[in-house]
Design a protein around this nucleic acid. Structure first.
Lengths: 190, 190
DNA sequence: CAGTTTTGGTTGATGTTTCAACAAGCCTGA
DNA sequence: TCAGGCTTGTTGAAACATCAACCAAAACTG
């Protein structure tokens, strides 16, 4: 009834505390003593989440429109372009891209069918497979990069002040380090 | 390798390839006068991109593990929980979530099959469909929220200083505003 | 140096998202 | 009023991602 409690972002409950502790640590005898997000934290988390989803969406769309590459394919090509001999092991690629191995296998197979990369046995480790960028892959990447960079500028870099963007990079580098070095970052990795 | 020009992030070319392969029918000087990202900008963009992918990945994984909801389903429930009568039009929901209409239709159909929401005709507009959260949807959300909030804290909020996190929210709010009010934000929307 | 475990990679089934096409209701103007 | 265009929402097929199962080679272990 009147109990539609103007719910905070991902904090739909705060329930048994009607008007009270929406913003503070709630050490109540609930199932879990979770420290809820403050209203400001909710706003910030939502802004980050929402903006990022839309940003990635529009950038991926523009990339596909201008080059026919998906964001993931583009990223595979970038990594290969930076690797010695434009070649990298599948496992290394998967780790770099934070993709599951199986996802990478599928992606690379499709890219191979289109002639963007080739796979070959790895000499050092008979289990391994090496992925190499073809000339077509290279020219495709070279053609794709300028409009993509423009996208990133238009929708992100140039929208912020240089200081804001630097701070964003710093913060996210911290987040990234914490994630990859964290205790159980087992989450991914197939 | 002498010919592998230590390539920057998404800037694989920089200069090594002049007019090469670009559009032939362009009499203009140069393919595009794109302003490349500086090295620092590349680092920051990559940190943001990479950290975000991993972050969303691990948070979605933990949410699914603890509640059986995907991140998208969770978000649908949150929006409904905040709407009057826990009901919202499909179109409004799709806009809020930056999902295509067709994606939302599929998602909601699956959620309806699981009893989390129900759909009904919209009285005001015979084309419309209203989506309402069920009691099961509510209790599911209430159970899902605490561990999810904990996830967000563990991997993002508490990893940064309060100032960093505030700045992140501010910056991304700017990015979001620019995206939704931008000239052609037609990108999405089915 | 056999037996076990771990790692690298693939496969196919299943689930989800995207895309194009469509149906039906709304709205406008002549 | 009714023709045309816009909006809302759905559908089915195709593309893509995820998951569990699997094989083969390496790396341990006793």
């Amino acid at each position: 009834m009147g109990t539609t409690p103007t719910l905070g972002a991902l904090d739909p409950v705060t329930e048994s505390t009607p008007a009270a502790g929406a913003t503070e640590a709630t050490p109540e005898p609930g199932p879990q003593p979770v420290q809820w997000l403050t209203e400001q934290e909710q706003k910030d988390w939502r802004a980050y989440r929402d903006a990022t989803i839309r940003l990635f969406d529009v950038i991926a769309h523009e990339l596909d429109a201008s080059s026919g590459l998906s964001a993931h394919e583009y990223e595979v090509l970038v990594r290969l372009s930076e690797a010695p001999d434009r070649t990298q092991r599948m496992s290394g690629l998967a780790d770099d891209l934070a993709h599951s191995r199986s996802r990478l296998t599928h992606t690379v197979r499709r890219m191979e069918e289109r002639g963007l990369v080739v796979r070959s046995a790895c000499s050092a480790d008979a289990r391994g497979v090496e992925c190499t960028m073809t000339e077509l892959g290279w020219t495709t990447l070279v053609a794709a990069a300028p409009p993509h960079v423009q996208s990133v500028r238009d929708h992100l870099v140039d929208v912020l002040t240089p200081e804001q963007f630097r701070a964003l990079g710093d913060a996210m580098q911290t987040v990234r380090d914490h994630l990859v070095s964290g205790p159980c970052h087992a989450a991914n990795l197939d």
